[in-house]
Simulated scan of single mutants.
Amino acid sequence: MLKELISLFADSFIKNKSEWVGRQAYPSRRVSLSTDLSEYVPPADGYLGFYKPDGNSSYSVDIYAYGTDGGIVSRKTLGISASAGEFTFSGIVPVKKGYRIVIYGTFTELWFSPSVGSKY
């Protein structure tokens, strides 16, 4: 009886916690960044967002995040030849606190969204 009660309590506790843990990764808010940045080191885990509308002067964009081993762990890239015309591009890259993010391209909007579970 006691074993079943403990098992029932543990199961309900773990289910409730796993849902809570899963929600901690979602973006919480938007912090605007300068569009002149070429690198960024996030103050917390979260997402780097970017927007480049049709009509911007540069025809390629590249944003990538380095991992602890020095290799690229997350990346968004788009390149179009100048003769192909203009393009619109937007997205987010998951980023980790303290890891260097490289930003190449001309953007109209650039922002950081800390995750719900971060202390930022």
Rank of each mutant, 00 (worst) to 15 (best):
Y59E: 12
D54E: 12
I6K: 08
Q24T: 15
L110K: 12
D45F: 01
Y47S: 07
T35A: 05
R100P: 05
I6G: 00
P42I: 03
E39Y: 05
S12Q: 08
I103L: 09
P42F: 02
T77P: 04
K97R: 11
S115L: 02
V73P: 00
T35P: 04
W111S: 02
G105C: 11
Y47R: 00
I63R: 00
V21K: 14
S38K: 14
G67H: 10
R100I: 03
I72N: 02
F89R: 04
R100G: 02
Y104F: 06
D45H: 05
F107Y: 15
T88A: 14
T77M: 00
T106K: 09
D11E: 15
K96L: 13
S115G: 01
L110G: 06
G22E: 13
Q24F: 06
A65E: 13
A82D: 12
I101E: 08
D11M: 06
L8S: 15
T35C: 14
L110W: 11
R23Y: 07
E39N: 04
D11N: 15
D45C: 02
S113K: 05
V95Y: 05
S28H: 11
L8N: 07
N16V: 00
D62G: 01
T68H: 12
D45V: 00
Y47H: 03
S12L: 06
G49T: 06
S60W: 11
M1L: 10
A82N: 12
G71A: 10
